[in-house]
Design a binder for these strands. Structure first.
Lengths: 211, 211
DNA sequence: GGACACATGTAACGGGTTACATGATTTC
DNA sequence: GAAATCATGTAACCCGTTACATGTGTCC
């Protein structure tokens, strides 16, 4: 019946619809709010997905009137709910991280010190933005302002994940920036410093283990 | 001259070539070794990229003989080096993380407790794999075994980043698993626990800040 | 003799991004 | 009257993935 196999993004939308019905526009906002940091997608994409779900019988659409303005509201069907449950029971693929900043540091010795510092600042800014976002979200729930009180437990897990990763990354970035500021030049390694930092990072086990 | 604008992946290859010449096969291995966790690409892709670089005048290819077996070895040109430097000086785009495990937790209340636990385990496994990989890499450099001693300083930064993130994620995942094991059911939130965990994660500021 | 590493691709497909487009309603 | 938000898309492009394909050399 469905012309195309569902993608993870389809299930992401379906999961949102399982919480409550949304208009396409609200869906786009929710995607930014809930998924931006761990399942980023361009908003323009979001206008085709729900239609695919409807075609597959997993969602329904109805016209609603918001004042004088028409909008399409999507809701999940029973088949949609069981499809979502089936998906939740499947294997979980590994995470995928794409960090250009990492590349800039990897090849940092071929550029300037400032290039490396800019990459570090980018990593720090990203981490700050993520922490901030989730601290705010978490704050709403602790104050009882959370939009979906019955989702507080899963949100607690995700908020603590994002904040833990964000804080760790920020701490690393700040220390790294201070260190790099003291570099002579990006092309010239300070071997003593590097070895100390490596030992610090990997601990005794990594330093002595056989290859 | 070049038929297509270079992608970040092109520059990733170019950066590798700036370190030393590689055959395509070695390049594929190196991509796995150096980029797997922060710039993952399918290996089959890697056989087209260097040719594009040659077409753009940023790299050269020559035939070499490894015993009786022929192979194509690519090396960077002067133009390639300056192109790389220019790229290093451009703006750094934000990181992009795609985590299906995150989605499984986000919609965890619609599935089973076991679904959530499997997602947590996946996150933990990913983090362990990353830590291990970078601990090993770091170990080589502290022992003086590192393949490129003049790159020890940038590698020290990256190893410490990966290990710091890996450790933070592992700690979070282990705690989360222990907590989720105590859940009654994935659909039923333990509000007291959730609030405590949120407060723990966001600290006093997030809890009291005005919206 | 078999397994494994070396070595190098091609073809088809597609999900996703970028850029563009349009217009109504509300708020200041 | 302007700006911001609401609201909903389309078209073109393409980078990247999956799956497939093929053969050699070396080691045990």
């Amino acid at each position: 019946m469905s012309s195309r196999r569902l993608t993870t993004t389809s299930y992401a939308i379906l999961g949102l619809l399982a919480t409550r019905p949304w208009s396409t526009y609200e869906l786009a906002n929710q995607l930014r709010r809930a998924l931006h940091f761990f399942w980023p997608r361009a908003e323009s994409n979001l206008y085709a997905e729900p239609k695919r779900l409807v075609a597959a019988g997993l969602a329904e659409s109805r016209e609603e009137w918001n004042g004088d303005r028409k909008r399409t509201v999507y809701s999940i069907t029973d088949r949609g709910r069981s499809s979502l449950e089936e998906w939740l029971a499947t294997d979980v693929p590994p995470v995928r991280v794409e960090s250009e900043a990492y590349l800039r540091i990897l090849f940092g010795n071929m550029g300037s010190k400032d290039d490396v510092l800019r990459a570090l600042r980018r990593i720090e800014d990203d981490a700050v933005a993520m922490s901030r976002h989730y601290v705010q979200l978490g704050g709403e729930y602790t104050r009882g302002d959370g939009p979906f009180p019955d989702r507080i437990h899963v949100n607690a897990l995700l908020v603590s994940l994002a904040v833990a990763q964000g804080k760790a990354t920020q701490a690393w970035a700040r220390a790294a920036r201070a260190d790099v500021e003291r570099w002579e030049d990006a092309a010239i390694p300070d071997v003593d410093w590097a070895v100390k930092r490596l030992l610090d990072a990997i601990g005794e086990d990594g330093a002595t283990a056989a290859p």
